[in-house]
């Protein structure tokens, strides 16, 4: 379970949260929704301890997030950031950086499920569209196969069909808690629970 408990945060000179609390149950699919600038991404970044609240606690599987538990908690988290313009040239290179060279079969399955063929594995990111790159990055990262998936704006560059395919892929993954942030209506409709920020 992921527990946001009485979170208060001023971030980059803005007052974002005051005693914010929410519980996310295991295997639940939750999406933070709301207009830009309200702190959806900031809330997501608290799960892998990329943002630390001024007060309150993030508790994951009963473990409070502090510097002693960071490694244990991050071991359970797959992080897919909003900015997919990672300075990496190909999916193959990304695979090596993530130590996933022995997971090419499962990556290929995910790439196919997202409507792309295996050739995208070696294509230069510079030569493919933003939507294709986003799908490839998501497919590769999901192969880390951790119990908590945190996705920031996973549909930002996707069309309707691709959003549908991504929803189906996420739903097909067993035993995963999925927390995302988005304001895409189609994604929100296909998510288990929407939390308005």
């Amino acid at each position: 379970m992921i527990k946001y408990k009485n979170i208060t945060l001023n971030y980059e000179r803005r007052h974002l949260f005051d005693s914010f609390s929410v519980d996310i149950m295991p295997n639940e699919q939750v999406c933070f929704a709301g207009p830009s600038g309200r702190g959806k991404t900031t809330l997501l970044k608290m799960i892998p301890a990329l943002v630390i609240p001024d007060s309150g606690e993030i508790i994951i599987d009963g473990m409070p997030m502090d510097s002693l538990n960071t490694k244990t908690i991050r071991r359970q988290i797959t992080w897919i950031p909003q900015n997919i313009n990672l300075s990496v040239d190909t999916a193959a290179e990304l695979c090596t950086l993530l130590h996933l060279d022995d997971k090419k079969e499962i990556i290929s399955t995910y790439i196919n499920k997202l409507g792309l063929d295996d050739s995208y594995f070696d294509k230069l990111f510079a030569d493919i569209s933003g939507g294709e790159k986003q799908r490839v990055v998501i497919a590769v990262t999901l192969a880390k196969d951790k119990p908590i998936i945190v996705m920031d704006e996973p549909t930002s560059a996707l069309d309707k069909k691709s959003i549908g395919l991504l929803s189906e892929l996420i739903a097909s993954l067993e035993g995963k808690t999925v927390v995302s942030a988005s304001h895409n209506q189609q994604w929100l409709e296909q998510t288990g629970r929407v939390i308005e920020i």
Binding site: K71, R74, L86
Partner: peptide, 17 residues
Amino acid sequence: NRELYYYLLVNNNNRTA
């Protein structure tokens, strides 16, 4: 490229990597 650093940090759970 801090986005790439954080991406690798969380997903690999290892600062060295």
